[in-house]
Simulated assay, not measured.
Amino acid sequence: YLMEAADDICYAILDLEDAVEIGILDVREFEALFSHFGETERLWHTDDPRQKCAMLRGIAIGRCVAEVAEKFMVHQDTLLRGSFPGKDLIDVCAPQIKETLLAAKALASQKVYRHRTKLVTELASYPCIGTVLDVLVPAIHTRLTVGEDALSARHQLALNLLPTPLHAEQGLYHAYMQVLDYIGAMTDNYAANLAREISGVGIL
Rank of each mutant, 00 (worst) to 15 (best):
I24E: 09
K105E: 11
A60P: 08
V27W: 10
I198Q: 02
G202Y: 12
H174G: 05
Y11P: 00
F72Y: 13
K52M: 10
C64Y: 04
L79F: 10
A5Q: 15
V27E: 14
L102E: 10
H174C: 10
G171R: 07
L136Y: 05
A103M: 05
L33M: 08
G62C: 04
Q178V: 08
A60L: 06
E21K: 15
A158Y: 06
A124F: 03
A104K: 11
I13A: 01
E21A: 15
A153L: 05
V135D: 14
Q96S: 11
L107D: 05
D188G: 13
T46R: 01
I140M: 11
M73F: 04
D47V: 13
A139P: 11
E31A: 10
D18K: 14
D47P: 03
A104V: 11
G23N: 08
T40G: 04
P127K: 03
L144G: 08
R116S: 11
A195L: 06
E169R: 12
S152R: 05
V146W: 12
A192Y: 12
A32V: 06
V137S: 01
C53R: 02
L162M: 07
H115E: 11
A66N: 13
P138R: 14
A6G: 03
R154A: 15
P165G: 01
H167V: 12
D47E: 14
Y11R: 09
G147A: 13
L2A: 07
C128M: 08
S109R: 12
A94S: 15
V201T: 14
C53Q: 01
A5P: 13
P163Q: 12
E148C: 01
L107E: 01
P165A: 03
E39I: 09
S152G: 10
D91E: 01
D134M: 04
G86E: 04
I198F: 00
E169N: 13
F30K: 00
R63K: 11
G82V: 01
M186E: 03
L14Y: 11
S125M: 04
F34D: 02
Y126M: 14
S109Y: 11
Q156V: 07
L43A: 04
I13E: 00
L136K: 04
L144H: 06
Q51T: 12
S152I: 02
R114V: 02
E21H: 14
V74G: 09
P127L: 00
F34I: 05
T46Y: 06
A153T: 00
K98I: 04
A153Y: 00
L162I: 04
L133C: 15
L151F: 00
L180G: 06
L144A: 08
L144P: 10
Y190G: 08
Q156H: 08
E4K: 08
R57T: 15
A108V: 05
A6W: 06
A195T: 07
A69V: 13
H174K: 10
L123C: 03
C93L: 00
E148A: 08
Y113R: 05
D8Q: 11
S109M: 05
K71P: 03
N160W: 06
E31L: 14
R42F: 15
A192C: 14
E148W: 04
D188P: 01
H174W: 07
E39W: 12
L80Q: 14
D77I: 09
V74I: 15
P165V: 04
P127S: 01
L102Y: 07
H36W: 07
K98M: 03
T40N: 09
D7S: 13
T78L: 07
L25Q: 11
